[in-house]
């Protein structure tokens, strides 16, 4: 690379910069962007696990089939059921995460508590554990024969609680998805909202006390309006996690029990990403799965556009 010849070159050495940036950029594009572009090709073919490696496979030669995969997708009850379940999951898990996270942030922000630091440290535990292990830990406490959480819920509902195992209940397992998703995400909500609460100037709180506002009024009329933007911001971020939930349904019970929907057997809790994975790994309909995942990429792009707008309305991160 030689010596920088001038201060100008030290500051703006385009060539050097490119040499440093391109290897990682190439790696990123090759393994992350290219497969998505390649999906767009697969989506218009009848690819499966045989003809993709052997295009002239007599029973089903590899060929372009136009929009057939998309037509099939939009006529597939299982697709709609998965979409419905994902939206439902968004509608239930996001408020739950916000509720628990904001509640804990308030709890940790009151001066009326001992051992705040220890408590905060303990509450951050789900962050220290990789998500995959967390889900497996939940699988163990939910075990149908030994799991204490299953025993507890069975006691509460007065019938066997069947979230995982050979006999499953659709809504029991959906409830458990919500609980685990909340468990994984509350440290994030708690930390960000807690930061916003501690950022409120003391004078505002003191002034409201002088004005005679009680704890409840102070919380709802003074503090909450000041942090509502942060809460909205966190809600958008954490919706992304719910929308992209994959490990929970996959590792916990592989999409829950099969049910009949509009005359077709479907996995009742196939959240969006898992639905495609099942078409890929169970049905070996690779072209169809690619078409589906193209739709998912579209949905995620809409989501990330909303997120991007929001970040920039807040004046950057």
């Amino acid at each position: 690379m030689g010596k920088p010849k001038s201060k100008e070159e030290l500051l703006f050495p385009t060539k050097t910069a490119l040499i440093l940036v391109i290897p990682s950029l190439f790696l990123f594009i090759f393994f992350n962007i290219w497969p998505i572009a390649f999906s767009a090709y697969l989506a218009f073919t009848n690819a499966n696990h045989i003809n993709i490696y052997n295009p002239d496979y007599p029973a089903r030669p590899l060929m372009f089939i136009g929009l057939s995969n998309f037509m099939k997708l939009f006529n597939d009850p299982a697709f709609y059921y998965s979409l419905l379940k994902t939206l439902l999951f968004l509608a239930t898990s996001v408020p739950l995460k916000i509720l628990v996270g904001v509640g804990l942030a308030f709890l940790l922000s009151t001066p009326l508590i001992y051992g705040r630091k220890i408590m905060r440290g303990l509450l951050l535990t789900p962050w220290a554990i990789p998500a995959i292990l967390s889900v497996m830990i939940w699988r163990s406490v939910l075990d149908p024969s030994y799991g204490p959480v299953t025993q507890f819920f069975s006691f509460i509902v007065g019938r066997p609680f069947q979230a995982v195992g050979t006999i499953m209940n659709e809504w029991d397992s959906f409830l458990v998805y919500n609980i685990i998703e909340t468990w994984l995400a509350y440290p994030f909500v708690m930390t960000v909202v807690g930061g916003a609460i501690s950022g409120i100037p003391k004078e505002i709180i003191e002034a409201s006390i002088v004005d005679g506002a009680g704890v409840f009024t102070r919380t709802t009329k003074v503090v909450l309006p000041l942090i509502i933007r942060t809460i909205a911001f966190v809600a958008v971020l954490t919706s992304g996690a719910s929308l992209q939930a994959f490990l929970i349904p996959f590792v916990l019970n592989d999409g829950g029990p099969m049910i009949r929907f509009m005359g077709k057997l479907v996995n009742s809790n196939d959240l969006l990403l898992l639905y495609g994975y099942h078409r890929f790994m169970r049905d070996y309909e690779w072209g169809y799965a690619a078409a589906f995942y193209l739709i998912v990429v579209l949905i995620l792009s809409v989501y990330v556009y909303v997120w991007f707008k929001l970040v920039f309305q807040r004046g950057g991160k």
């Binding site: 992350n32 495609g276 690779w286």
Partner: peptide
Amino acid sequence: QVSGGFGVASLVALFVFLG
């Protein structure tokens, strides 16, 4: 922001082209 979802969404193509 969407790496998790894009990651899963590109699995089919990744599997095929690496194969």
